[in-house]
């Protein structure tokens, strides 16, 4: 299991903010730790209240562990460039997550590198719009 963890990084100053939870408290996640997961997407659950990415990680002994990675709501994801088709089963990804404190393979997404090399966050508020630009 530990072999599945490519990197463990203390993150005292989170450059990638967690999505402010619309439904959950994220108190169960250890926001001081980051775990890097390298694996294949089994399923991308594009639904409320939060989206989830199921990632299967294989360790050096060939054992599989499926991680549940929690992201923001589809609303927050869509407004930051995500689509329901951004990920599909079989996609190889590298995800950095804040793991659950209890050690189960479950984490809050910090950032994810997609097969095309682009990096995305976990969803957020819509990009700000300067005052003076709204004409209704």
């Amino acid at each position: 299991m530990k072999a599945t963890i490519v990197g463990l990084v203390a993150a005292f100053a989170l450059m990638w903010a967690l999505p402010a939870p619309a439904h959950h408290s994220f108190a169960g996640f250890d926001r001081t730790k980051e775990v890097m997961l390298r694996g294949a997407v089994r399923e991308f659950q594009w639904n409320n209240p939060h989206t989830w990415i199921q990632i299967v990680v294989v360790d050096d002994k060939g054992r599989q562990t499926e991680w549940s990675v929690e992201c923001g709501s589809p609303n927050m994801m869509a407004r930051t460039g995500w689509k329901r088709t951004t990920l599909k089963a079989g996609d190889n990804v590298v995800a950095v997550v804040n793991p659950l404190k209890d050690g189960r393979p479950n984490g809050a997404l910090v950032k994810i590198t997609l097969p095309d090399g682009s990096v995305r966050g976990p969803g957020d508020a819509p990009p700000p719009r300067p005052l003076g630009s709204a004409k209704n």
């Binding site: 169960g28 409320n48 209240p49 989830w52 869509a78 659950l100 404190k101 819509p126 719009r129 004409k135």
Partner: peptide
């Protein structure tokens, strides 16, 4: 609140995929 005519309202239904296996652990309520 700021007027945002560029935003479209979307759906949000909390009970769609509540992932109950996680709720006991991290206050998924």
């Amino acid at each position: 609140w700021q007027r945002r005519p560029d935003l479209n309202m979307m759906e949000y239904y909390c009970g769609e995929n509540p992932r109950p296996q996680d709720e006991a652990n991290f206050a998924g309520r």
